[in-house]
Design a protein around this nucleic acid. Structure first.
Length: 876
RNA sequence: GCGGGCGUGGCGGAAUUGGUAGACGCGCCGGAUUUAGGUUCCGGUGAUGCAAAUCGUGGGGGUUCGAGUCCCUUCGCCCGCACCA
């Protein structure tokens, strides 16, 4: 065997072929081993994989391979999140059909992923744009509809008045349509919604049962759901010719501040505002102004607080003679609460700014507990903390919580008309999930609109409703709507002419259940096979970017509940037991003297004592090294995984992305680092060769290794196994890498010290074990190299199928302990003493040390603290 | 504004969760091998100091035998969410 140079270019495809031929990574159900489901968020087939994919899939692969070695029946599948806008954009730009574009991308990305040597069960692969996938999604839509989990209602969209098309938020650039440049308007469309709010409480409460999720993600979801407990309060209106209504209902979480109220404010779309506007052109103008500028939060955010006095007056619920002005305000949202608020400037910052702008007054009603009420007055910023009620009649002297109770109690007792004035209510920030998209490249919504029968579900035997193939994409708008024949159908109910729904589903729907489909992608009749879902799910380890912390993960959790209710997932409640959100791959940026971005490949880096310098590769001109940023085409700071794999091999790329940075943080890709990883691959190969030539032949027993040298070697090796094991279990891949480096250094030193002519048999045996264990340790991370080494060491099976090395913990315990000895908290000496020495002996030995005596200046110690097996501190 | 996080050598980062600060890697310095470069191997590398030693985890204070870790305070940076009543 030639250990001169490891040739990844030859070895990697060879082992990939062998794994595939032997179907090593195919998972099967009904296996007696415990199951383990590893899943990385499946990729959008954009065309090429990027380093972020490499990092994501390498992490999952390490876990999959490690768990397999630990005796688990591992499911590690791959698929494609294949519907989406980029395919339609490509169709528009390049005149390619979205399907052709998508499937070509899938083909090239599949080849790229395969070149990474991932331990995937490719037999379960699917793309969400396959009719054989979306057929089941349509079935589930109908099941959800039947179960009352789907509704139709109006919602606002970004409308491009020139292109006559709905725009996604990302298609709105500075308030204008990305293609037409026209000013975007808000328009109401009737759309399909999933009733995610039905599960708001459960989705919130169940977060507590997800200890293996990052705290951060659970918090983000909790904030997104945004549960708040408050009170609906009905205010009587003073009679006015402009309106027919006699009251306004507001929602508040701060009923305690009711005596600090200075005004009421309505959303621009509030029915009462609209009604008053009919007889008030100025107000109508203001409302139109509020509607301008799109729906996106960013635009609202920057807007200045504006209002318009309707002239209406509302009576304070506790004092009929106290009249409050009613405004329409741009900061009140129609979608939240009742679309109307009462404003208390003293204790809400927005209300304060509004009241100041319109001179509406300010009366503080809550005084912080540690402040004398006599000295407490109007403040520059609203005070929203706890305290004692003041200026509030019967509430005076109460704390906030008690005042809330009291107001609630009294308003529930007070009647307005025939109903109580106040009603407790829990509100959520979470809104129902609008899934209608006016696009072609998505899953068609299986509904037929019939003039006589209304909305008719497409009968199950007619599914899938397939996307028509003959399309033109040279005009804006929804291509499906323009198709000459597709939407014209016969009503399945009454047989008269009817029309298909031409909206397609949000692509988040596709990714909300794919993890269940992987458990039985061959089921052509049903979306899932519930017993198989129950066998494999929940996903034990899910890995992906933190950018999906809210929407995707929340939708998937909703879908699991909805599928549970409709009988598709057995008793499964939560889809992902363990979640890990990995950081990005980032890279330096380079700009030449004209400010043009340069690719890393066009740059040479030199480092000396004065630091790093970058030079243009072609003419040597020095260029500026810019900040380290997320890899992006626009800044040209990208590295193509294909180039790295082609130059150094997949194992080098895998090793690099696992090294250095903790996986949840960003990792900086650098050319030096990639070189370093490649060198280390070669070093491992050479070390295995050296170990092999000194070692006993494979298959010999190590049981009788007794020489001190052999024990020392085994102690190091077994200790490393324990460390790497722990690091992989805890997803601390950077530490596992460091541990392997460390073991490599130590084994190199051993081999270097050994006189190869005179090696005791038990040392040979220890070295043989060291070689085997080292190979198995690196196998999850650099699987191709591991196979090559495994074969070179004389094993007949595959490293990928070998069990994880069994560490002997007893071996790692030495009979002596080396204590650091501190005097007054400062390390002065080391004490080597028998592990079984008693406390008095340890203390005496520590005090007897010359360095300790010197540090104590020969005076007696006041106190001595011995932390068993850890440290000794002498107090002088 | 609210919520969360972070701050350790030239750089990425370790630190047994209150117990030897700087593991491991990158870079750099010196040496060996080499015609040379690269590779490889050996040694060094927090600061000051000839040394003994002293200082050192953004700053200040505290708790403790002992603090990078806990508490208070302050400065700086990053991320998430938001006119959500």
């Amino acid at each position: 065997m030639d250990f001169e140079r490891y040739n990844a270019r030859v070895a990697e495809p060879k082992w990939q072929r062998i794994w595939e031929e032997r179907q090593v990574f195919r998972a099967s159900s009904g296996d007696p081993r415990p199951k383990y489901y590893v899943l990385e968020m499946f990729p959008y087939p954009s065309g090429r994989i990027h380093m972020g994919h490499v990092r994501n899939y390498t992490m999952g692969d390490v876990i999959a391979r490690y768990k397999r070695a630990r005796g688990f029946n591992v499911l590690h599948p791959m698929g494609w999140d294949a519907f989406g806008m980029p395919a339609e954009n490509a169709a528009w730009h390049n005149k390619t059909h979205p399907a052709d574009w998508t499937y070509a991308n899938i083909a090239s990305m599949r080849a790229q992923l395969k070149s990474m040597g991932l331990a995937l069960d490719w037999s379960r692969e699917f793309a969400t744009c396959d009719p054989s996938y979306y057929k089941h999604q349509q079935k589930m839509f109908l099941d959800f509809l039947a179960a009352g989990l789907v509704l139709r209602k109006k919602s606002k969209v970004n409308w491009d008045p020139l292109d006559h098309t709905v725009l996604a938020n990302e298609q709105v650039i500075d308030g204008r349509g990305w293609r037409s440049g026209a000013l975007v308007e808000q328009r109401e469309l009737t759309q399909w919604f999933f009733k995610i709010t039905d599960f708001a409480d459960d989705l919130l409460d169940a977060l507590g049962g997800l200890p293996r999720w990052p705290e951060k993600v659970r918090l983000m979801q909790a904030n997104w759901i945004g549960r708040s407990e408050g009170l609906r309060i009905r205010f009587e209106l003073a009679p006015s010719p402009a309106i027919t209504a006699s009251e306004i209902e507001v929602y508040t979480t701060r009923p305690d501040t009711l005596f600090g109220a200075k005004f009421l404010a309505l959303a621009a779309d509030h029915p009462l505002a609209v009604e008053v506007a009919r007889s008030n052109p100025c107000l109508a103008g203001f409302i139109a102004e509020c509607r301008h500028g799109g729906t996106s939060e960013a635009t609202i955010e920057t807007a200045e607080k504006k209002g318009f006095d309707t002239g209406l007056k509302a009576r304070h619920p506790f004092d009929r003679d106290w009249l409050l002005p009613v405004y329409v305000a741009n900061f009140v949202l129609m979608d939240y609460g009742t679309g109307a608020i009462f404003g208390c400037p003293a204790h809400d910052q927005r209300d304060l700014e509004f009241a100041n702008a319109y001179g509406l007054g300010n009366t503080p009603v809550i005084c912080p507990g540690n402040v004398d009420p006599a000295s407490w007055g109007i403040t520059d910023t609203a005070y929203d903390g706890d305290g004692i009620l003041i200026n509030s009649r019967f509430l005076d002297g109460m704390r906030v919580a008690a005042a809330k109770e009291e107001v609630s109690k009294r308003l529930k007792a007070a009647m307005l008309g025939k109903l109580p004035q106040g009603r407790r209510e829990i509100q959520y920030r979470l809104r129902d999930w609008g899934i209608s998209r006016q696009r072609y490249w998505g899953c068609p919504i299986p509904i037929i609109h019939c003039g006589g029968c209304g909305m008719v579900p497409v009968p199950e035997e007619q599914l899938p409703v397939e996307l028509p193939r003959d399309m033109s994409f040279d005009e804006p708008g929804n291509p499906l709507d323009r198709h000459p024949t597709w939407k014209h159908v016969i009503c399945p109910n009454c047989g008269s002419p009817a029309q298909r729904e031409t909206d397609t589903m949000d692509t988040f729907v596709d990714s909300s259940w794919y993890f269940t489909r992987f458990t039985d992608p061959w089921n052509s009749r049903e979306p899932t096979t519930p017993p198989l879902v129950e066998e494999w799910l929940p996903v034990d380890q899910y890995i992906g970017g933190v950018e999906h912390a809210i929407l995707h993960l929340l939708y998937a959790r909703f879908f699991t509940r909805a599928m549970c209710r409709t009988g598709h997932v057995g008793s499964l409640k939560e889809p992902f037991d363990g979640l890990f959100t990995q950081g990005m791959v980032v890279h330096e940026t380079y700009r030449d003297k004209d400010g043009a971005w340069l690719l890393p490949a066009e740059v040479r880096i030199k480092t000396d004592e004065s630091g790093r310098h970058a030079y243009k590769a072609d003419n040597g001109e020095e260029i500026a090294i810019g900040p380290i940023e997320k890899m992006s085409k626009s800044k040209k700071n990208t590295v193509d995984p294909d180039d790295i794999i082609g130059d150094f091999g997949a194992d080098t790329a895998r090793w690099f992305v696992l090294s250095d940075s903790p996986p949840e943080r960003d990792v900086i890709w650098s050319e030096e680092g990639a070189q370093g990883a490649a060198k280390f691959i070669q070093r491992l190969w050479r070390l295995i060769g050296e170990l092999a030539s000194a070692a006993a032949p494979a298959g010999s027993s190590v049981q009788d290794a007794t020489a001190a040298e052999a024990t020392a070697i085994r102690r190091v090796v077994h200790g490393s196994v324990i460390q790497v094991e722990e690091d992989i279990e805890r997803l601390r891949f950077n530490r596992a890498v460091a541990q392997v480096h460390d073991l490599t250094n130590k084994l190199s030193a051993f081999v270097g010290d050994i006189d190869t002519d005179e090696i005791a048999t038990d040392v040979r045996l220890a070295l043989q074990e060291a070689a085997d264990f080292l190979v198995l340790l690196i196998a999850p991370m650099t699987p191709h190299l591991a196979e090559e080494c495994w074969a070179a060491l004389g094993h007949t099976g595959l490293a990928a199928e070998a069990p994880w090395p069994a560490a002997d913990r007893a071996l790692t315990i030495e009979d002596t302990i080396t204590y650091p000895v501190q005097v007054n908290g400062r390390k002065r000496a080391e004490l080597i003493i028998a592990r079984d020495a008693n406390l008095a002996a340890v203390e005496a030995a520590a005090l007897a040390l010359e360095a300790v005596q010197r540090a104590l200046e020969r005076r007696p110690a006041k106190k001595i603290i011995v932390v068993p097996n850890r440290i000794i501190n002498v107090v002088g």
